[in-house]
Design a protein around this nucleic acid. Structure first.
Lengths: 189, 189
DNA sequence: GTCTATAAAGCGATAGAC
DNA sequence: GTCTATCGCTTTATAGAC
């Protein structure tokens, strides 16, 4: 059973994907829920609060640590674990039909609202650091050179960042295959 | 000397990047140009027309053929030419300070306006076909297997698509280096 | 071609009753 | 907690004068 607070967030999330953040009006959210506009204001002080709450939720969802747990990585298993964890990430994001569009909305919003830009950049930076640390295990295993770590961490970050765009489309290539190829490329000397 | 028609488009393009498409009002455009709102309606029948005109312009700008000219490619020069053409593309897109943000705006808009979604997908599809044809030259040169062409064309398309995100930020890695690495990866057996 | 003035609609948000 | 009613503002777009 879900609370009204949660119901509002769920409907708003869907509308942000379908209609866009700016064009999603409080009236529209109320209408879809079968309640009145002031009822939403009882739970959220403003539309901005609704936008911020969903953004914070999303940022937690996409954190590096949710998909790649550094503690489980060893110089021995790094290749296979990178591949498997990436596949799990792709699968999870594909399971949410609104994910890509809502992210795209927030990305556009970040052009005008510094707060979002800073946070999105931060999340990307953590991916960069995370992949850097994982790739250093590959250095220890003599798979790659230390000097190549930085560039290849950037490379993997870019791929991860771009993969969701290819997730819900019928490009007759599984994004998982691209990820697998990218991991092999990143670990090739 | 530029016409008023062009002046309107230039200012609107900048505002789309700085303020966002939806939050850019006709009044704001008029104000920045030092003219009145109805004056804009003399040149463009609606705000939608303004949005469409700039979109069409942008789609022509980012076409595959503008950056990768298939006729100049041979099995011999493919590696070097892919790298050089990619660098030129990165340089050109970085030269336009509004490019990334406006593209991001249209990408968000494509979530609700099918017209844009279809066109963006089409442009991506042409990249896919283009890289496929170029990589077939690499097959002829025995650089890679035919069976790998499709996946690697997808791979290069994803990279190209994602690179502009890294263009205007201080990630202390040149996106050109990522592209170079990607090309070498795509041409490795 | 460009203006002032304004119509018509929708927005976020609030007051106050229940 | 949820409602009806409404305020104040901004939006796209147009009418009509110059």
């Amino acid at each position: 059973m879900s609370t009204k607070y949660e119901e509002i967030l769920v409907v708003t999330y869907r509308l942000f994907a379908e209609v866009g953040i700016e064009k999603t009006s409080m009236s529209r959210i109320a209408k879809e829920l079968g309640i009145s506009k002031p009822a939403i204001y009882y739970y959220f002080p403003s539309k901005g609060a609704l936008i911020n709450t969903l953004f914070d939720f999303l940022m937690k969802e996409i954190q590096f640590q949710n998909f790649f747990n550094q503690e489980e990585y060893t110089p021995h298993n790094i290749r296979q674990k990178l591949i498997v964890d990436g596949h799990a990430m792709i699968k999870q994001q594909a399971a949410d039909p609104h994910y890509e569009k809502v992210m795209s909305e927030y990305y556009a919003l970040s052009a005008k609202e510094t707060k979002f830009a800073i946070e999105l950049k931060h999340v990307l930076h953590i991916y960069l650091e995370g992949f850097t640390r994982l790739l250093e295990l590959a250095v220890a295993a003599d798979l790659i050179d230390r000097k190549d770590v930085h560039l290849r961490a950037q490379f993997l970050t870019l791929i991860v960042d771009g993969l969701d765009k290819y997730t819900d489309k019928e490009y007759n290539v599984d994004p998982s295959e691209i990820w697998t190829f990218a991991v092999h490329s990143a670990l090739k000397n």
